[in-house]
């Protein structure tokens, strides 16, 4: 029976791609990568670093294995691994990603001294009182008064937004941007139905709720209909 190749090198107009078989054992794969790259006389004379993409199909690679492959390829050639593409992720990671994009409803008043931390988007049905803090890795939507501190995109998502029925926060934070309330707040302003996002000038802007559909079209997850 003819032995099929476990490693196939393909050149596309975007650069080189290494297709690695996902059926054979990892050790076989490693050996073949090593052999292929040593024996091949391709690009022998080129000194310049070339970036390659690695596609591993349905094989699950641990972080160590990924590092090992990257090192292997780097050693053999003047190649540098740009990206390892795989079709599979671990269940743990899948659950984590799921949580991060989930909307978590909470019906509570967040009072002074209390901190509410959420992975994903927070939908707070209640108020945030002065001295209270809400923090989410995603967006924050407050159905009541926001008078305390809100920190959206706390793990570093600058696209995150904060929206509140009444926006009178003591501080707003998005990713690592911080904005505080002006010292003189006009008493009679209603500040209702407002949102906050990071503007083009890398500062937190507060505006009418309706501008979000233009600034953050990705907020809409609903498809079809209309």
């Amino acid at each position: 029976m003819k032995k099929t190749q476990n490693v196939i090198i393909k050149g596309t107009k975007d650069g080189l791609t290494l297709h690695l078989d996902d059926i054979c054992s990892y050790d076989d794969l490693k050996q073949e990568v090593e052999r292929k790259l040593s024996s091949s006389t391709l690009f022998q004379e080129e000194q310049q670093l070339l970036s390659v993409k690695v596609k591993v199909g349905n094989r699950f690679l641990t972080n160590e294995q990924e590092e090992e492959l990257k090192d292997l390829i780097r050693q053999k050639r003047n190649l540098i691994v740009e990206d390892i593409e795989t079709n599979v992720i671990s269940r743990k990671e899948a659950e984590k990603r799921c949580r991060e994009t989930e909307i978590v409803p909470v019906a509570k008043v967040i009072r002074s001294g209390q901190v509410l931390e959420i992975a994903g988007d927070l939908l707070l049905i209640g108020d945030v009182n002065p001295g209270g803090t809400v923090r989410a890795t995603g967006n924050i939507f407050v159905m009541g008064y926001l008078r305390g501190i809100a920190h959206a995109g706390s793990a570093g998502n600058a696209e995150a937004v904060i929206a509140a029925s009444v926006m009178k926060p003591s501080q707003l934070r998005i990713s690592n941007c911080i904005n505080r309330a002006p010292d003189e707040m006009p008493e009679n302003e209603s500040r209702s139905m407002e949102c906050a996002y990071i503007s083009e000038s890398q500062q937190i802007a507060v505006d009418r709720l309706q501008v979000l559909m233009k600034k953050r079209p990705n907020l809409t997850r609903f498809e079809g209909g209309l």
Binding site: R111, G113, G131
Partner: peptide, 12 residues
């Protein structure tokens, strides 16, 4: 009022 808010949070 701020302190009352804190204490209510603890009482809850």
């Amino acid at each position: 009022v701020r302190d009352a808010d804190r204490i209510i949070g603890l009482l809850e």
